[in-house]
C-alpha cells in the first residue's frame, strides 16, 4: 500500500515536471534539444516506472509502534526547531537545548543529558571557531 501511495505521488510529480517544462520560456536556442527535452524524457521514464510500481508494489514492511512514531515526530520537530533557532539564538544555546533533548530521546537521564549537551556545545563552539575557523553563528539576538 505504501508503495502505491508513493507511486501515485511520483506519477503526480512526473506530470508536474512535464507541465512545468512546457511552461519554460526559451527566448533563443542554438541546439536541437534545448532545456525542455531532458526533463520531458525524465518525466516520461518516471511516469512509466511509477505505473509499474503501482501495478506491482512490494508488501508493506514498516509497522511502527505508537511510541516510535511519537519519538520520530519529536525528533523532526526538534530538528526543525534547531534550524529555526540556529541563527537567531546562536550556536551555543541552540545546540545545548537541542542536543540535550536528543540525548534524552536516546535514553539519557534529563539532568545528565543537559549537562552533557551544554559542555559539548561550549567546547565545540571554540573548537569550530578557533581551531577550524568555521562560520558558526553567535546569535543575531546578541548582535552577532
Amino acid at each position: 500500500m505504501y508503495d502505491r501511495i508513493f507511486a501515485g505521488a511520483l506519477l503526480l510529480l512526473s506530470g508536474l515536471i512535464a507541465w512545468a517544462a512546457a511552461q519554460f520560456d526559451v527566448p533563443f536556442q542554438y541546439e536541437p534539444l534545448g532545456p525542455k527535452a531532458f526533463p520531458y524524457i525524465l518525466s516520461a521514464l518516471l511516469a512509466v516506472a511509477a505505473v509499474w510500481l503501482m501495478i506491482r508494489p512490494s508488501a508493506d514492511g514498516w509497522k511502527p509502534t505508537k511510541e516510535v512514531v511519537l519519538r520520530l515526530g519529536g525528533a523532526l520537530v526538534l530538528m526543525y526547531g534547531y534550524a529555526f533557532i540556529y541563527e537567531p539564538l546562536g550556536f551555543i544555546i541552540a545546540t545545548a537545548v537541542v542536543g540535550g533533548v536528543f540525548s534524552w530521546l536516546f535514553g539519557e537521564k534529563p539532568i545528565k543529558a543537559g549537562v552533557y549537551a551544554l559542555v559539548m556545545s561550549v567546547v565545540s563552539f571554540f573548537l569550530l571557531t578557533d581551531l577550524l575557523q568555521l562560520n558558526v553563528p553567535v546569535g543575531t539576538v546578541f548582535g552577532g
Binding site: 530538528m79 541563527e87 545546540t95 542536543g99 536528543f102 539519557e108
Partner: peptide, 25 residues
C-alpha cells in the same frame, strides 16, 4: 560509546557543516 552521547554530536556536525557553506538557514 552510548548513542545518547553520539547522536547529539552527529546532529550538531550536520548543522554546522551545512550552515558553514552559505551561512543561510
Amino acid at each position: 560509546i552510548r548513542q545518547s552521547y553520539l547522536i547529539p554530536v552527529i546532529v550538531m556536525l550536520t548543522f554546522v557543516g551545512i550552515y558553514s557553506i552559505h551561512g543561510d538557514s
